[in-house]
Design a binder for these strands. Structure first.
Lengths: 341, 341
DNA sequence: CTGAAAGCGCTAACAG
DNA sequence: CTGTTAGCGCTTTCAG
């Protein structure tokens, strides 16, 4: 049943080496012979064995990617970019979903050398993984990671600047009573976004209206804004640590008869697809997903091919981008919406 | 640098065979020797080579999964279930994202025998893949596929029943002017959901209020509902082919001053996470993601291990489930919301 | 319970 | 341009 390279050699009347050469697009094969080989392959329905190939070559051609969830626009974009770049270079991407609770050592991507390198996207307990990877000597790049460890190769987003820009946008619109709903403290990105918020306020001699802690879900934004409505103590603008929180806030405000952006401005973070489609279309901070993916692949492949660990200083970091849509407006604005995207 | 099984054998003073036995949890190794081997492995930081293993065993232990996108709650749930079940069985899941435009033959998962089997989740041009897989003789299962080909092993959802149940729910609430926004005609699921809708109406001697075609996006739902508002010709209830469309409809209606569910009821399909968090929390038809994943794995593993192609008759199909939340209510209901989940 | 030897299927020198 | 010959690292008979 299983047909191998010898069968093809026999059938084509040539040697296995020639067959192998055809397989590897070697140019040193006479056209006539190549055709013979190709014909034999087709006739026998030959499928080269990847394991044998990897063993002989000492490389698998596979790059692993770990993610914690799939239901997310940002991840989707990063992954698609990675996939495209990798395919371009003749590598194949294998994604593995793992829950943060699982032990790093349990992830089969780490177990044996199944991959030539690893990309870790938005990892949670990255220290554990780093230790494991260093021990196993697998090239890897952290993408959008949470820790700031100068010795770990990583591509990150300047969340502080994002937080600053978001807040600054609100200030520039005339707002002075600006609330912030943060993400879980566990995440550096949460802390950085909040820091950016505080920096912007400080720069203008403003105090935070209030800082509540959310958890990157619509429900948390909804609950917090509902509480504001109940207490009757409302800010004029809100910077939410992510789009889901922002959607929850807008949703609650609508229910409370408060208009966005006429009465209250709301800005999010991430540029989730859905947030750009629901009205008022959300003003937000977009993460440069493609750039992250592209650079990640570039650094990793370079490490693998040149076997030189990428420089970590200066850190590879991208600035996020302010996307102005319809959920923010000038304070007391007479329905004066800012330009949409 | 690279340490192999021989190094471990030497270091532990035993043979490679014994080391191999330890590696494979063989019970026929003296405890003392096992310890020696394990110690040597640790000392040398030994990593078994997956390629060599696969080559010798004739199997990779990897199951491939192809998806077209990642940004989706349903896919996320299915994938997580698959991942869990596979891990349980000692298999490893490798996900591959591919655009429908790519040729099946370009997908590296298909190229060489890298995987022991393949799961195709919500495939688009499945015929092409089927042909390829059959040719290459790779065990596979289609999950949530669009074509009804009785000879192809697949696990699907009864979309017709889902469409029927959704519509029936609206009818039971007293609605008679029920509109439908379908998905792209290309998808069997779209056509089936619409068919279910028509069947339910017919059963009660009702005519469709209207059937518009959407494309599974918030924007399409928004546009269509906006058009209704403009024309002033509104149904009392809407069955949207998916949650995103439903969200768009609700969003547009809100903007038009029409209340959901008091004035118009809206039901979706899929049970996307976000739709259950935004208010009014969406009444919808939930697809049995976990069941699909579980059965898919079961059938595939059975095929691989017993080398018997799964039965395709009767078809493996699950019924979706009506989830009643807040976006549907009795016709002319005095704010009479149905019970929430 | 342990080990020597023969592959698994393919590629990389090195000759011809 | 083509073929012979060794491995790549691991598992699996089959003896001991």
């Amino acid at each position: 049943m299983k047909v191998n390279i010898f069968d093809v050699a026999k059938k084509s009347g040539l040697s296995v080496v020639t067959v192998s050469r055809v397989l590897n697009q070697s140019t040193t094969v006479r056209a006539k012979n190549r055709d013979k080989v190709l014909q034999a392959m087709k006739d026998l329905n030959y499928q080269p064995n990847a394991a044998a190939r990897s063993l002989a070559l000492g490389r698998t051609g596979i790059i692993g990617l770990t993610v914690t969830t799939l239901d997310d626009t940002f991840l989707d974009l990063v992954v698609k970019e990675i996939n495209d770049r990798l395919t371009e270079q003749g590598y194949f991407l294998a994604i593995s979903v793992y829950s943060p609770e699982e032990e790093a050592t349990h992830n089969p991507l780490f177990q044996e050398d199944r991959v030539d390198g690893l990309l870790l996207l938005s990892p949670i307990h990255e220290e554990v993984y780093v230790r494991e990877l260093e021990l196993k000597n697998i090239p890897y790049i952290m993408l959008d990671n949470q820790l700031v460890n100068p010795s770990v190769p990583s591509v990150t987003v300047n969340n502080r600047k994002g937080g600053y820009d978001a807040t600054r946008h609100l200030i520039d619109l005339g707002h002075r009573q600006i609330a912030h709903i943060s993400g879980p403290d566990l995440f550096l990105s949460s802390r950085e976004r909040e820091l950016g918020y505080r920096m912007a306020l400080e720069e203008f001699g403003l105090e935070p209206f209030c800082v509540e802690q959310g958890d990157f879900t619509v429900a948390s934004g909804y609950a917090i804004a509902s509480e504001w409505l109940r207490s009757g103590h409302l800010p004029t603008a809100v910077f939410a640590a992510d789009d889901h929180i922002a959607l929850g806030v807008i949703n609650a405000l609508h229910y409370g008869g408060v208009r966005v952006p006429q009465d209250i401005s709301v800005i999010g973070f991430d540029d989730q697809l859905i947030a750009s489609q629901l009205h008022p279309r959300l003003t937000t901070i977009r993460q440069p997903a493609e750039k992250i993916g592209r650079l990640g692949v570039e650094l990793l492949l370079n490490w693998i091919l040149e076997s030189t660990r990428p420089e970590t200083a200066p850190p590879h970091q991208f600035d996020p981008e302010l996307i102005i849509r319809e959920s923010t407006a000038r304070l007391n604005g007479q329905d004066q919406l800012l330009g949409a995207e």
